[in-house]
Design a protein around this nucleic acid. Structure first.
Lengths: 224, 224
DNA sequence: GATCGCCTCCACCTTTTGGGGGAGACCAGA
DNA sequence: TCTGGTCTCCCCCAAAAGGTGGAGGCGATC
């Protein structure tokens, strides 16, 4: 049985969603809340599996409440944001807060039920338009590299390896150590790859590596 | 009426999907293809609105075919990848190729129909597990910056400006020119910011800028 | 067998970089 | 007023980086 909580400041809307869900044999609405504060408290007490969360609410908005509930961590629940509009910032904040779903209130009842089951099952569910935006942003971030990646192909294997280590912020000496070669050799490779790529120095090489996707933000544990 | 093409090398599977879709009053299966090559040709001739594309096929795989069909551009169609497995690389390549959907073949028939309508409607549809991964990667990419961004706050305004230009791959002389100050001053700022951030050289500064979100891939027009 | 590309190193040289001071001007706050 | 922080610039110096040219070994290809 899926334990669901519905959070919305409009009691009527809240009841509507609750009724739709309670109508399902495998879903039980165990709590309702009308503000973010109430939601946090109710989540703590009732430990729902899924929370349907409105964004605009008095006292504390749904995104803030989501972040706090998920941060608390003693709850293993998942949150689906349920809103009327879908402005970009909300989506962004919601995903960052840890929401597993983001759907619009005009969603058909069956789809809402499906979204609840999907998220309970470990998946994520976004409104189609949002999925589309997420994809395009994702592709943009990693897709710049096309023409740049071609330049990469002009490098030899070893040169690409050296470039990869350069993009870690390593010095020539460190690269030599990492690749088990002499630092003179590293210098040769560096000079060669800079020349082939039309770059001036290793700083530009780092930029290049990030831009073409050889290096990616979020992979490095930067103590540096 | 939605014009759909089904591409799969297994005729039985292909017919199955085609029958499910043709059964809908607003959907018409206008073509079928068994290889990537056939798909490209059929897409050109029949101009479907939606293409359901398998990945593993002889002659040319579905991702390659997708890329070529969408590159051709004279077609305004949208592609939904339909596969048995969902290895990361496939998803990645598919989105990059321009697919608007990525669903698994074990999807319930109604959900497939819904996916077709959703994508035809301009949205995107991913399998829940993939949506989840996409979100987590997205959040990771943009979320790394928190602890790093704190380090950024220790810098003065000018130092942050200098760091921003450094992360463009500029030399001290170029930075001086860009900020209308002497190169001696630039050196002072660079030394100071490296020291404050615990970095050794400008290459590491570039890495830092990307990792903390000060610089972002896909914003630079790299002639460098 | 000769050629070519790649990897490995060397030496020599210039430029850039980064560190260590110091100094004057400016501004905000104690 | 004085202090502290910031921005601006200076000098000197050592280390690193980058360019140039050369060399030997090695595998693939012609």
């Amino acid at each position: 049985m899926l334990r669901v909580m519905v959070v919305d400041d409009q009691a009527l809307v809240r009841r509507g969603f609750a009724l739709v869900l309670d109508n399902e044999p495998d879903i039980e609405v165990v709590a309702e809340a009308g503000t973010g504060i109430e939601a946090i408290e109710a989540a703590r007490q009732r430990q729902p599996d899924i929370i349907l969360m409105d964004i605009r609410m008095p006292e504390m908005d749904g995104l803030e409440a989501t972040a706090r509930i998920l941060e608390a961590g003693d709850a293993t629940c998942r949150v689906i944001i349920l809103t009327t509009f879908d402005p970009d910032e909300y989506v962004f904040r919601a995903l960052r807060a840890g929401a597993s779903g983001f759907v619009l209130k005009d969603i058909p009842p069956e789809a809402l039920v499906e979204a609840v089951r999907t998220v309970a099952d470990g998946g994520a569910m976004l409104a189609p338009a949002i999925t589309k935006r997420l994809i395009s942003q994702f592709v943009q971030k990693l897709g710049t590299g096309r023409n740049l990646a071609e330049r990469l192909e002009r490098l030899t294997t070893r040169e690409r390896e050296v470039l990869a280590v350069i993009s870690d912020g390593k010095s020539n000496a460190e690269i030599a150590e990492a690749l088990f070669i002499g630092s003179a050799t590293v210098k040769t490779h560096v000079s060669s790859l800079l020349s082939k790529l039309g770059l001036r120095d290793r700083a530009q090489a780092v930029v290049f590596a990030y831009e073409c996707g050889l290096a990616t933000a979020g992979e490095r544990d930067i103590g540096l």
